[in-house]
Amino acid sequence: MSSGSGSGSLLKYIGIRVLLVIPMMWVLLTLVFILLRVAPGDPVTAAVGDKLSPAAIAQRQHQLGLDKPLIQQYVEYIGHVCRFDFGTTITDKEPVLTVIRDQGGATLTLTLGAFLFAVAVGVPLGRLAGRRRDTALDAGIRVFGVVTYAAPIFWVGIMLVALVIKFLPSWPTFGIASPVVAFEVPTKTHIMLVDAVLYGHGDAITDVLKHHVLPCFTLGLLLMGVIIRLVRVNVIQAMKGDYVEAARARGIKEGRVIRKHAFRNALVPVITVIGLQVALTLSGAVLTERTFNWPGLGTALITYLNGRDYIAVQGLVTFFAIVVVIVSVLVDIINALVDPRVRY
């Protein structure tokens, strides 16, 4: 116990948490595998059935290993994923990994931007509402939070686009960059924003940033509703905390009491829930990308879904699952760094 607060227990906690990724991942991969198999219809027929003869279809199925027993398919699927092999798409014969590399960057900057925006605006708003509880300001912020959370993403996106086109016609409303910029900027990292920065032209960077504003704003609003409500409730809760009153009894200044004792403690549960929202953000990203014609993984997923490209969908969903698992580990580690009680 005497060494309980040392860094040893933190390292041990992180070690255990990372090891727990293995069973977590296994459960998720199994779920992905089962969900795709219980869907009715046979993928090859669904994708290209009307164009090929039954013999050709059977041959395709054999190629994809779909004629093997389920259990063998399952073992092979897990084995491939372990070697980071997500398969090759049926429709355009591209390795799924290449799709992820080419289009993942756009999704990354979209979700990160939305996330930063939601946290930067949502946390202060939630804190303000919590401190000014039951005032008109609080009511206004709460209504805003509920509306942004409840409004469907594609509707918000379309409304924003309509508004921008009316009042600011020169502002870009779709895509990740203007065609000229997209053509000029050499592809290095497959992340448009980073490539533009590496290219070094101010105009190109501004152009890409401008393209990010509307999609990030739209996706950010979805997250912000959750964050506002969470921060507000937790700040109210923490302000009633016994240690907050005890700090006041020691004559600590009110500003510091709120910052160090109420607000900081209120953020602990918020971190956990924000981490869980990553899954929500990813599903929101699919809709946002669709709305803004964003060249990311969400757009790719919808295209492959429409094409009944079963291998591509399986690969992309697997990748999303891995991202969610990794983020949840990161959130747990951050939590352990912030809250000493978490480390066991």
Binding site: D242, A249, D339
Partner: peptide, 23 residues
Amino acid sequence: RDLRGTDLAMIFQEPLTRLNPLM
């Protein structure tokens, strides 16, 4: 407030919840 802590102090009923768990 300036008097609290230096001249006036308080000890509470519930010691388990009176210290900030993060500090």
